[in-house]
């Protein structure tokens, strides 16, 4: 299995542990990731507010880079996935728009044809790799670990662009967590938003949203949250101490990247997975599984 890998800006910066853990688990699973040479930021849902044709053209270029390699494009960030898939959908469904964008791309040496799929690590593991194959690679089942599976918005919504599973009652993340040997807890906010994209213009509201998510997971008895999106992870982990100021109840809960949770089950070391780089201490999680 081979994919053109689109890491996204966060993995180069604050969430470097998501990059290393993704690379490590891919290696352990035998999935080859070829990082796209020259990829640019997906626009992160902001560039379209200034110029939607520009956002579309930049992502057409990103996908064209994968097409050049003849590979499907794999992301590990919900928002990157949405931005790239949204561009792909617009280009594939509107021939005039595709022509217009190709005229622009053509002059800087790229062509968008529509041949590369845009997919996410979670989907690949479920649909292409298969949970049965994943189970065979497990060295350290996460028995006894209670996990709150937090999807994040952009891997589900809008469903006409994402569409991997029903957005009202998705099951992929829970199935994966269960395959790793952990136990899912039912919590109210599993499909809610972390607030990340408005953390600057709506700081107080967002800190409340973040806190409610953590509280919901904690009160359901989870030892940690896990998310397939590095932006959700950042928001829920990095801003947890700020959110705490708005709450009387204790919010504290470690928040893991999906790749880290998988890595733990594959027997990788906490250091390799960057579990020391979190703001909220991840030791309580490790204590549950490194017995």
């Amino acid at each position: 299995m081979k994919y053109a890998f689109f890491p996204g800006c966060t993995l180069e910066g604050a969430a470097k542990e998501a990059l290393t853990s993704t690379q490590k688990i891919a290696e352990a699973l035998g999935i080859e990731l070829v990082e796209l040479e020259g990829w640019t930021c997906c626009g992160a849902s902001h560039v379209q507010d200034i110029d939607d044709l520009l956002a579309l053209s930049l992502n057409a270029r990103n996908i064209a880079l994968a097409e050049k390699l003849n590979l499907p494009l794999l992301t590990v960030c919900n928002t990157c996935t949405l931005m790239l898939r949204s561009a792909k959908q617009q280009l594939d469904q509107t021939p005039e728009l595709k022509d217009k964008v190709n005229t622009i791309l053509g002059q800087s040496g790229y062509t968008y044809s529509g041949s590369s799929e845009v997919t996410h690590l979670l989907w690949v593991l479920l649909k292409n790799y298969g949970l049965d194959n994943l189970k065979k690679k497990i060295k350290r089942p996460l028995t006894g670990l209670k996990v709150a599976s937090f999807y994040g918005c952009h891997i589900l919504r809008p469903p006409d662009i994402m569409g991997f599973e029903n957005s009202l009652n998705p099951q992929s993340l829970e199935k994966l967590v269960e395959a790793l040997g952990a136990e899912n807890v039912a919590f109210e906010k599993r499909l809610d938003c972390c607030g990340f994209h408005a953390v600057f213009p709506a700081e107080q509201e967002v800190l409340k949203i973040t806190g409610l998510d953590c509280l919901s997971a904690r009160e359901a008895g989870a030892h940690c949250m896990v998310t397939p999106c590095p932006l959700c992870q950042m928001q829920l982990d990095m801003y947890q101490p700020d959110s705490q100021k708005q709450f009387k109840e204790t919010l504290t809960i470690p928040v893991l990247h999906l790749s880290q949770l998988i890595g733990l089950a594959l027997g990788l070391s906490p250091q390799d997975l960057g579990l020391g780089r979190h703001i909220v201490d991840t030791h309580p999680v490790l204590e549950k599984i490194l017995k």
Partner: peptide, 14 residues
């Protein structure tokens, strides 16, 4: 209306 406060959760579109 708080135009810039939308968190882009896409619930409305969904």
């Amino acid at each position: 209306g708080g135009l810039w406060k939308c968190v882009r959760c896409m619930q409305c579109v969904t």
